[in-house]
Computed example of a mutant assay.
Amino acid sequence: MPWAGDGRSESLPFPVEEESLPSQAGRKGKVFLALFGGLLGLGLCVIFGLAIFGAPWTPRWLDAGIPPDRLSEGIPFPITLSDRSGRIYPLILVRTGAQIRAFPMQPPGISCLLKIEGAELIAECIGCRFTADGRPIAGPCASPLPAHPVQTMGGSVWVDVNRLR
């Protein structure tokens, strides 16, 4: 015996409009719209996050606010930069001729901050000394200090804080 609500009976005991009955296609459409709306919302959040914080694979150039001619030849100049997210980048800028280098204050593989003594950079925790252009002078360090890419744009020094070379 067919039940009145299972959709197999010819007539229903109460008046029902055909459009008010749930159909399989209607449910699938609602599920599709819910999933599509969720994915669209997630995509917008990702795009918004990348716009605010920057994509990790793109260069993040920060303006040091220093004209290149203000840097003395071969004398390390400490500076602290920060990005829009509030992350702080302590750096040491050094000009040698027309080239400007930006060394991180704490290079990878060295557990202490670099100290500036005259025209030298010193990592006291491991006993390494470097020239102003990052070449090792004394101590167990055999490789030069890695530096961030630097450009001069608009009369100011810009540093790419995402990359080291």
Rank of each mutant, 00 (worst) to 15 (best):
L50A: 05
A98C: 08
I66M: 05
G41F: 04
G54H: 09
L113A: 06
D83T: 10
L121S: 02
L42P: 05
A34Q: 01
T96K: 05
A25Y: 01
A64Y: 11
L39M: 11
K115T: 11
I47W: 12
E18D: 14
F14A: 02
P107M: 00
L121V: 13
L33R: 07
I126Q: 08
F103H: 13
D63T: 09
G134T: 12
P104W: 00
I88Q: 07
K115I: 13
R135W: 15
L62T: 03
A34M: 01
R129H: 13
L81A: 06
R129L: 03
G109A: 09
F53S: 03
E19T: 08
Q24R: 14
P2A: 07
E120G: 11
P15Y: 09
S85G: 14
P104C: 03
G86F: 00
L71N: 11
V46H: 07
D69R: 14
A102F: 15
R8D: 02
G43Y: 04
I126V: 12
D83K: 01
R70H: 15
G38F: 15
F77A: 10
I100G: 02
E124Y: 15
C45P: 00
G5C: 04
G38R: 05
P78A: 13
R84V: 11
T131W: 05
G41P: 06
K115Y: 10
D69I: 14
C125Q: 08
V16Q: 07
S23L: 13
Q106M: 00
G26M: 15
G118V: 15
P13I: 13
G43D: 05
R95K: 03
V31G: 03
R27G: 07
I66T: 10
